[in-house]
Design a binder for these strands. Sequence first.
DNA 1: GTTGAAATCCTCTGGTG
DNA 2: CACCAGAGGATTTCAAC
Lengths: 145, 145
Amino acid sequence: MVGNIPKIDKFDIEILSILRTEVRTSVLEISERIGLSATPVSRRIRRPEEQGIITRYAALIDEAKLGYEVSVFVSVKLDKQVDDSLAAFEAAIQDFSEVVDFWLMTGNRDYVLRVATRSLADFESFLVGRLTRVRGVASIESSIP
Amino acid sequence: MVGNIPKIDKFDIEILSILRTEVRTSVLEISERIGLSATPVSRRIRRPEEQGIITRYAALIDEAKLGYEVSVFVSVKLDKQVDDSLAAFEAAIQDFSEVVDFWLMTGNRDYVLRVATRSLADFESFLVGRLTRVRGVASIESSIP
DNA sequence: GTTGAAATCCTCTGGTG
DNA sequence: CACCAGAGGATTTCAAC
């Protein structure tokens, strides 16, 4: 069976909920919090890693403190004519360092990007100089968090 | 001066870009990749942690593999009448385990939430049973990635 | 002030009961 | 699953640039 949902018990859920926001919590501290010894905690962390439930460990960066003060949600609609526009579009935006995150919405030609730049001027030059020039882009709409 | 932008050199940028996607990379491996020894790498990791540039370390969970197959972006507009609705609303949604992420948009009464549930039925019951009942919620719109 | 190397300390992991 | 021992990595200290 494909797409099988692994059996997860109360301990696994507690561990995942801790790791979701505090990866650096030591195995020992987790074991004390949930009432287990270190060994099974270590095993219960490794299993979701191998199963691909934990896709990766990421450091969340406060872009504003680095001078990336402008953060924008950009909705992009793609041209319906171009057949391989999705793959091409995704490849293109992955090369843009300004794109922090992106999601493909239902309808399959509608993306939402989160874009971070140092200033509104940088954002606008990214928009007109780079994003609008990607093949297949039909229309763009921005909203600022 | 408030909001000062720290001086970041080439090494810091390289370290941050590694940590952004691969936190578990050892200090030794980072030092080999960027051509520095372990000591300065360790210090250059701690500094952005203390400055709040690295806000937290997070394990990214594949919700689909846990059976949370439905992931939805929800736009919520808040009622303009209620003065403290922002704080109340944020407090409320932080208690909802279904809310994976949320952002406050410009206009100050417009939130975007990312919601993950096990099924569309669960999502709908979350929507009508919990989210719409939060004080100050004026209107809701959903879009599915 | 920052680096580089060695010593210390801490934490993870594999084996045993 | 708990306990214990070995191993690997991170952090502190100190000398040098």
